[in-house]
Amino acid sequence: MAVTRRGYIFGAFLSSVLSVLLIVVALASDSWVTSTATAPTQTADSSIRYGLFRGEFIVRELITPSEFTLYMTCVPDLGVCAVSCKTNEAAREVEVRALASGYRPNAACGSTTTVNEANPLSTPPVISFAFYVCLITLLIVQLLLAVGAAGLAILNATKNPTEPAFGLPGCLWTNITVTLVGLAVMLMFGIYWATSGLQTHLAMTHIALALFVPGPGLGYSYWLLIVACLCSATNVVLIQVRAYLLEREPPPPTIKVENHSDGTIFLY
């Protein structure tokens, strides 16, 4: 009986499922950007965290902290995004427009936004809308590819498809692509974090107006992508190790018909 070593392929399937889950968590969670927010009048440091869609702003000015939801708000016609704690969608848009223009919106987490156009900010504390859209698009592409890699792995673990696109070569190259796209996402966000000034203003009114001193960092949502990339890279290794072991297997014995003169029928 031929040795198929399907355990390696099934291991690649489990690793692909883990990669899918990690990408989903990274995409949906609210800890891409994390920061403390220090002010002299506080009883303890406030905290900020937000992801690609929402976040949380906890203010500790008093013994009992106040919690506010942060919303990633984009204004496509200006090509900018920022986070806002305003409770009204229209107020959030007005706030982001003011930040994009360098003006100073009020910092209260209420339902209205007032704008002070005097003494404008030197640098608009916003995120590039094009960068934001590209980041989410690549994450969705990575997720779809990871789902495809998991499907190909379980397909090859349960049967032997004859189509090359659905065989192990397809599974191998899908995992390679997942890894490369994941690394591209991490490099994009990491470089943008280091060079755009996002660490300084956090694309948030309270930090841009210097009401708080930030202690910024990258949250677990970002670092989960490293594990997702490692899972996909592990799949590549498993598939290649399996191929290497199969090549080392001794060939099946061959029967020479001319050595048998007793009329035995051989089935091949």
Rank of each mutant, 00 (worst) to 15 (best):
L246P: 06
P105L: 12
F131E: 02
L183A: 15
T137L: 15
N175Q: 05
D30L: 07
E61S: 11
E163R: 12
P253R: 09
Q240P: 05
S261G: 13
S16R: 01
V94A: 09
V133E: 06
F166Y: 11
T112S: 15
F266A: 09
V178P: 00
G79W: 11
E247L: 07
I176Q: 05
L172R: 13
Y50T: 00
T112P: 05
F266Q: 06
T34G: 06
P164R: 13
N259W: 12
L168R: 12
P252C: 05
P169Q: 04
F212I: 08
Y244H: 14
L22E: 00
T43D: 02
P214W: 00
I63E: 12
F13P: 02
E249H: 10
L78E: 13
R49A: 12
S46A: 13
P252Y: 00
P253Q: 08
L225T: 02
L138G: 08
P164H: 14
C109D: 02
A44P: 07
E61G: 13
L22P: 03
G215A: 15
N106K: 11
A153W: 06
L22F: 11
F266W: 14
P169A: 04
A12H: 02
V126R: 05
R54T: 13
S16F: 04
P250S: 04
Y8G: 00
V75Q: 08
A44M: 02
N156M: 01
V213F: 09
